[in-house]
Design a binder for these strands. Structure first.
Lengths: 201, 201
DNA sequence: GACGCTATTGTGGAATACCGCAAACACAAA
DNA sequence: TTTGTGTTTGCGGTATTCCACAATAGCGTC
């Protein structure tokens, strides 16, 4: 897992260097990319932090890059920067889920403050995803039959009813039920329901 | 409860009339307001639909009106229209929760299509809020003691444990438990947990 | 074939939940 | 005072859960 940092994509080397200097001064790690293509080639799903994306670039534009990132289900917050943005462009980007859209020129603090917020958002999302991951891995450890029994438990049915429905003995249902609680690391059906409802809701 | 309609706020009578004609032709009801002040004076929390809000107006601007609506916790989706918008303005509005931000001139279909989506969103939100309202009214019908017992049930505790914790007899806990299920209209603790987790999650 | 995992079932008992009926007490409103 | 609501408790009984111990059978891997 790479650490949280700002991934800066801009085809102007002077700007890249200036941003890098600013960021590092403020203690924000960053990586530099001269083109959308270079970034997309290198990008890995476990990268954390945020993306600072220039819109007008040689080759693939920042907006195209953004679309590609969405396709690849990259969840990193994206901060667009542009010198010649127009309103529909900004509206479209934000409605697609961009974190921010900043016009040049911007003050040093303006960008860095938003980058820090974006990184904080990603960190929070990562934490939530980890929680979901824990639950999901437990779910994955269930056998098909156990999952089947669990579904019925979550409908609040008695073991007896479940046994009838699956045409097996009550004792078998109890065995599965016990296994399910064990693997999901809960002590009651209520905890199980809360764990899974949180996962979905 | 008033029915879903587009609330148009614009100080240009010609535009109001033109929009009204377009909307009615497409079967979208609307109300017309010559100023932000007029709308804010009349607005009631049970109004449904969406708001079409011009930014540049005499008196209170559309942006100020939006801020006021947020303060008053109005949840109607807001579509801004403006002839002289700039990017920071659009970005700020959307980040505050505006539904859309459209620059003049726009095509007939462009606005009406977004209005219809906004109204659909409000309708959906309304439905979800009604569900929450149902659960909340049931919760409100619980006595203090019943709610107390319910909390402990949701922690998956046995009646015996609850009885000890509240220093009352098991039989009393059973009585409360039964009342809680009755009032909340559920048949098991699992259902109760799901109902309340959905409310919060 | 031995081994491990999964699914299945049984016995028997202790603990718990659930329910109807009944009732005592406090407290506030009519 | 009467009435109503909320809180509390008991009795007796049935249904259900939960658990330890034990066992059979299928299935795929090594």
């Amino acid at each position: 897992m790479s650490q949280a940092c700002a991934h800066i994509i801009d085809d102007d080397e002077a700007i890249r260097d200036a941003l890098q200097w600013q960021f590092r001064t403020r203690g924000v790690e960053c990586t530099l990319w001269p083109s959308a293509e270079a970034f997309l080639d290198a990008w890995q799903t476990d990268w954390r932090g945020c993306i600072v994306l220039d819109i007008r670039m040689e080759g693939m534009s920042g907006l195209e890059c953004f679309d590609t990132l969405i396709e690849r289900q990259c969840s990193l917050p994206v901060i667009f920067i542009t010198g010649h943005g127009d309103v529909p462009m900004a509206v479209s980007a934000l409605k697609k889920g961009a974190f921010d859209f900043i016009e040049k020129p911007f003050s040093d603090n303006e960008l860095i403050e938003r980058v820090e917020r974006a990184i904080a958002l990603d960190t929070e999302r990562q934490r939530a995803a980890a929680d979901r991951g824990t639950v999901e891995s437990r779910l994955a450890s269930l056998t098909a039959r156990e999952r089947e029994v669990m579904e019925l438990i979550l409908e609040g049915k008695y073991n007896k009813v479940i046994a009838d429905q699956l045409s097996i003995s009550m004792r078998t249902v109890e065995a599965h039920r016990s296994k399910v609680f064990d693997k999901m690391q809960v002590r009651s059906a209520v905890e199980l329901a809360q764990m899974l409802t949180t996962l979905k809701g």
